[in-house]
Design a protein around this nucleic acid. Structure first.
Lengths: 187, 187
DNA sequence: TTCTGTTTTCAATTCTTAGTGAAAGTCGCG
DNA sequence: CGCGACTTTCACTAAGAATTGAAAACAGAA
């Protein structure tokens, strides 16, 4: 029986490693650094709260790195500190709900990227609209047209994100149902 | 008149720079390097096809860099080579349609990130399902549950992306209209 | 083929970011 | 207070990515 249990355990570790590794890679192409993504993956998959030393050992990272990454994840709001009664040591756990996790990430990215980008585009348009007097040089007219299309696109995208964030899960499922339904219809 | 035209021109250059700069920054947090993003922005906003030397001068980059980045953008399919009759030199232009641009980007990312991630999650689940015999240790059960939620989430997200890609613009507007409408309704 | 304008390649270099680890800091408790 | 368990900070280093530039390759014209 003890034998059996240890088999299960190695299996669990292997599966965790696989998941953690992939998450780490994914994070990188999303502008999140590997360690942060890995820590988050670990806390998500381990389910029970872990302390800093456990994280360090499991992922083979330095104390400093663990400390900073854990803090950053807390700042993002995708993990939380958990205080254990009597224990002085801090534990950390992932938010349990995937939908909520992604809402947070999306809204953060919207705020930090989409919003400024939209702002810039509007600024550019303003500069060019001001420039055109009676006769608009073709290059300026063309640039204005492109900026206009881009702005429109981003507004729509923004609205979609907003929806995701707003209804926390419900929004997404809603979109999904509409889409899947319609795509089924037209084959 | 010559005076006026040059005013318009500097204005255009300034607006372009603003746009290009922002795009470059955005690219970075999306795993696209700055130069590539900037070149694309330039070709998008300049509207008319440009040659390598124009790109180099405008963005102040080396020939090698320009060559490699232009090629990479072509590989992605977001810009195209344009041959000018009689002219030996190559010109390059951006795809004109924003929706198409983003379809390409999204489908590429889906293929390179979502699909492998989903695959990994399934693999992990398989490993753990196999491990559980009659009595499933709580940690394994918990991990399985989390993986299940993640998989479901990613399937939905994947379907949504698929839709974007499929109907080339139409899909997006469709989603948008549904969302905006419903969010208006429930205030 | 050779000449010439042009693009590609790639080793070397520079820039950027991630990660370390030890010293300094915090905090509850006797 | 001041000890000890624990965490944060930060100057330094390692790792990795982007960029350059000059040599090589290429392609069309004569």
């Amino acid at each position: 029986m003890a034998h059996n249990r240890s088999l299960d355990e190695t299996q669990l570790l292997k599966a965790q490693d696989l998941f953690i590794g992939r998450w780490g890679e994914m994070g990188q192409t999303w502008g999140i650094n590997r360690t942060m993504a890995e820590i988050h993956a670990l806390l998500y998959i381990a389910v029970e709260p872990l302390c800093m030393d456990q994280v360090m050992q499991r992922l083979n990272i330095s104390r400093g790195n663990a400390s900073m990454s854990l803090r950053a994840l807390c700042d993002w709001g995708v993990i939380r500190k958990v205080s254990r009664p009597g224990r002085r040591r801090q534990f950390y756990e992932s938010l349990p709900d995937v939908w909520e996790l992604f809402s947070i990430i999306i809204s953060e990215r919207k705020r930090r990227e989409m919003d400024p980008a939209l702002e810039t585009i509007r600024q550019c348009r303003a500069m060019l609209s001001g420039a055109k007097g009676q006769k608009t040089p073709a290059t300026i007219a063309a640039a204005l047209a492109r900026l206009g299309e881009m702005e429109q696109f981003m507004e729509v995208t923004n609205a979609i994100f907003q929806q995701f964030i707003g209804n926390n899960g419900a929004g997404l499922t809603q979109v999904a149902s509409v889409l899947l339904q319609s795509s089924g219809r037209e084959g």
